[in-house]
């Protein structure tokens, strides 16, 4: 059973672990679950996040200063495990995972019930060559990133490989938090939806409000909100923000 497969359109939220406080994560997970978020992406902070805009960069810096690392993160996840039932995905750059040890990382991830791992700077080709076997051994799904410009054959290959997970469609060539022209990309999103076959397809990068989310729901199976939610956390408006996002879900569902 693929935990990311549903009839309705889905909303996913990205949060940086350890932001704004070292111990913010458990409460944030509960809040997101209470508000009906379909799955949650937990960002592992890294000092040099190449694909991220200023908001995620700053939340990562703050989280590192707070003392967040993979050991602390897995401990927090073990403690919340019994309360949290929505699927959890880890998202992090390769270097911290490499230092922690791939085996150890996968083992801990599988103990914590993690349903997928996104590593933006580990290309699929290198994953296949060097790490696929270990991911399979620990039954952790590697979630591939694609862009509107990815080749059709590549999209087909990665969605085949991610049948227990999903495909993460980066909305446009841009770092996180950028201004995105969703409309001009819709027909390509539609093609990609077909190429992905049975594998769910979620759109992320640049979804800031309910209008953007509605654009994600047009062709994809759901949308992932990161930067805008971190900003809501900083401003203390996460409840209101989630409510406006949920309205879109209900309308479309």
């Amino acid at each position: 059973m693929n935990p990311f497969k549903k009839q309705d359109k889905q909303l996913s939220i990205f949060i940086t672990a350890g932001y704004p406080e070292l111990n913010s994560l458990p409460e944030q997970l509960n809040l997101l679950q209470r508000n009906g978020v379909d799955f949650i992406e937990i960002g592992i902070p890294f000092s040099d996040p190449l694909a991220d805009g200023p908001v995620i960069q700053q939340s990562s810096q703050q989280a590192i200063r707070n003392g967040m690392n993979l050991e602390v993160l897995f401990e927090q996840l073990k403690e919340t495990k019994s309360n949290i039932h929505v699927p959890l995905v880890l998202m992090g750059y390769f270097n911290p995972i490499l230092q922690f040890g791939i085996q150890r990382f996968l083992k801990e991830a599988s103990v914590c019930g993690i349903k997928g791992v996104i590593i933006p700077d580990l290309p699929f080709e290198i994953y296949m060559r060097s790490y696929q076997e270990e991911f399979q051994k620990y039954d952790v799904t590697f979630i591939p990133l694609i862009t509107p410009k990815s080749e059709d054959s590549f999209i087909k290959m990665v969605s085949e490989n991610s049948r227990n997970g999903f495909v993460y469609l980066v909305s446009q060539h841009a770092t996180t938090g950028s201004d995105i022209q969703f409309i001009s990309n819709q027909s390509r999103y539609a093609d990609i939806r077909v190429l992905c076959g049975e594998t769910p397809l979620f759109l992320g990068f640049g979804i800031r409000n309910n209008r953007d989310l509605a654009s994600a729901y047009l062709e994809c199976d759901g949308g992932i909100v990161g930067t805008a939610f971190l900003q809501a956390i900083t401003e203390g408006t996460e409840n209101e923000f989630l409510k406006t996002l949920r309205e879109v879900t209900l309308q479309e569902g």
């Binding site: 040099d48 590192i64 993979l70 750059y93 390769f94 270097n95 911290p96 490499l98 230092q99 922690f100």
Partner: peptide
Amino acid sequence: GSDGVIHGSLTLLMQDRDGQI
């Protein structure tokens, strides 16, 4: 330094035990 990834390349780099550069 120790083995790690910086700026798109696996190489020797100065990092802490958490893999922060």
